[in-house]
Design a binder for these strands. Structure first.
Lengths: 167, 167
DNA sequence: TTAAAGTTTCAAAAAAAAATGAAAGTTTAT
DNA sequence: ATAAACTTTCATTTTTTTTTGAAACTTTAA
């Protein structure tokens, strides 16, 4: 396999993976492209490589910057804007985790708390509902906190956790 | 908030969360409904509660059973099939992790391995590509393994991991 | 064996999500 | 102040995904 083919395969695969996890294909593809580019890439180049429109490129670049995983770069004496991706994978994981937690998990937790707090009139049905949603709330909260700790400490997370537990 | 309202809110929220993570809304809603139902539910009831067609219900129930998180139940002397969800959340997490790993992560890893193995002709561009995809492969593999270990040991994962590290 | 009660399948329709592209907006150099 | 170079926005179109519903299929009971 030669370089161009490999690069294209990578971009397509990353795009498909994105779709499966609720991230739009183009957004994931742009991210993939920037990840493996050794230098900053212009919007023109992105449009050209991925065969997408200016509007599409612009909107998805904005979304990636909102996630904090793509940055704008200005080259001296050039009008045009260039883009780079966060290339440190630990840092990337931290940012993706934080955003997904903030945008999706936290609001879901809020709802779980609400619905598990109804004053049940003690039918078996209602008791089961309260019980199950309470468990779910606790579970999701625990998982969310764990992810937070893991990403906070990056590679170091296990060591710190162990230290904390042992003292 | 009364029970019916809370139940509905829960089902809607779980459906929305599903969509954001690449699981179709109806599938997530059926799962939510079964999770909080104290007894097995028929296809009729699911269609009625979620206002969906028979075909939709049938296909998504099949998908949930393929994931191993919903079961068919037969009631003595009844023709009709009933459905229940896996209600143990640790078990649910294990099954979801395993399926997503098998269906999505493993195939992506295979591609990452392929594309990172091109014989680079040592331009800076190609070197960077190989370097970055190799790092990505290692990272995703590590994350996938970690999730596997965590779910394998469920609540016990940290203890076992610590034991392993200390010996 | 047949018909009733139920389930599955899949082509077609509908809905939702994403992409386009042209007009409006911005910035910079002169 | 103007125009060139570039970016953003958003109504419309396209694509993708999901849903429908009716026909085919399966199972059970009489």
């Amino acid at each position: 396999m030669e370089f161009k083919e490999a690069k294209n395969k990578f971009v397509q695969t990353w795009g498909a993976l994105g779709s499966q996890w609720g991230i739009n294909k183009t957004m994931a593809q742009i991210h993939a492209l920037l990840m493996v580019s050794h230098e900053a890439v212009s919007m023109e180049d992105i449009m050209e490589e991925l065969q997408i429109s200016r509007g599409n490129a612009s909107m998805n670049l904005r979304a990636l910057m909102d996630w904090g995983i793509v940055y704008k770069e200005y080259k001296a004496g050039e009008r045009r804007e260039y883009f780079t991706a966060e290339k440190d994978l630990d840092e990337l994981a931290v940012k993706i985790s934080r955003e997904r937690s903030k945008r999706e998990i936290k609001p879901a937790l809020k709802v779980l708390k609400e619905v598990s707090s109804i004053t049940s009139d003690n039918t078996a049905e209602e008791k089961h509902f309260v019980d199950q949603t309470t468990k779910l709330y606790d579970f999701v909260l625990k998982a969310d906190n764990m992810l937070d700790k893991m990403t906070e400490y990056k590679d170091n997370w296990l060591a710190k956790l162990v230290v904390k537990i042992m003292k």
